[in-house]
Amino acid sequence: MRAELSKLLGLPTAWAGLVLGLIAAPALVFVNTPGLRRALESGRIADLGYENLGIGLLGALILGVVAVSSEYTSTGDDSPGAHQMTATLLAMPRRSHLLVAKGVALSLVVAVQGTLTASATMLLTQVMLPDYAPPFAPARIAAAVLYWTLLGLLAFATTLIFRNGIITLTVFIVNSSVVSVSYLLTKLTPWAAYLPDIVGAHMFLRSMPGETHIPPLTAGLVMTTWVAAFLAAAGFFFTRRSA
């Protein structure tokens, strides 16, 4: 576990994810304040501040991807087939133990980052828009942090299945920021609201776009189930494949 933490935090790309995740949401509060003010005057206030938290999940995604993709990056031009996973498996040959250690290390890092960011974002919202900001709600912040952590684990599992970070990163970033395929699907069927990447947001957002309203607890359970299924699949492949 300690080894996995040290490994993850020893990577420059992991720090990029950390910094991005840490500052993106609070920064958005600053940038977005004028727009928010207008929205507020028209009466939409339920998710003030929390809406900005969505962007911070990029950090969790990057961390989840990097925790695995760094293992499969070629170590040098002299030996293109060689990667760090060999050293990792030589040090920790029990693959199931290794996966648990990695998952726990990742969850810890994302959770600490998420707590800091979410708290900072909400406090900042209160400073910038004191008249409108909702009261500081630890439970909703915890839900947002849980959402990030689960998303980090989802990225982790997906990358492990594909053994390639580019695919995961592209799919998740495009889906979460440019065009949300999952969101478009909700136009076709309300069941799409239960897709892994968007269901979790119901845990802390009260006015999600779309018709379906999912209670926070249900959303959390559904997303946890998705993540557990992805992790199980990743574990299945990982313990059976040659390194």
Binding site: R2, A3, Q84, T88
Partner: peptide, 20 residues
């Protein structure tokens, strides 16, 4: 190959191995 991620220093690589 060395087994070390390109971005890691030699010392950092050996440190996580030692911890493991």
């Amino acid at each position: 190959g060395s087994g070390a991620h390109r971005a890691r220093t030699a010392r950092a690589h050996l440190r996580w191995l030692a911890a493991s």
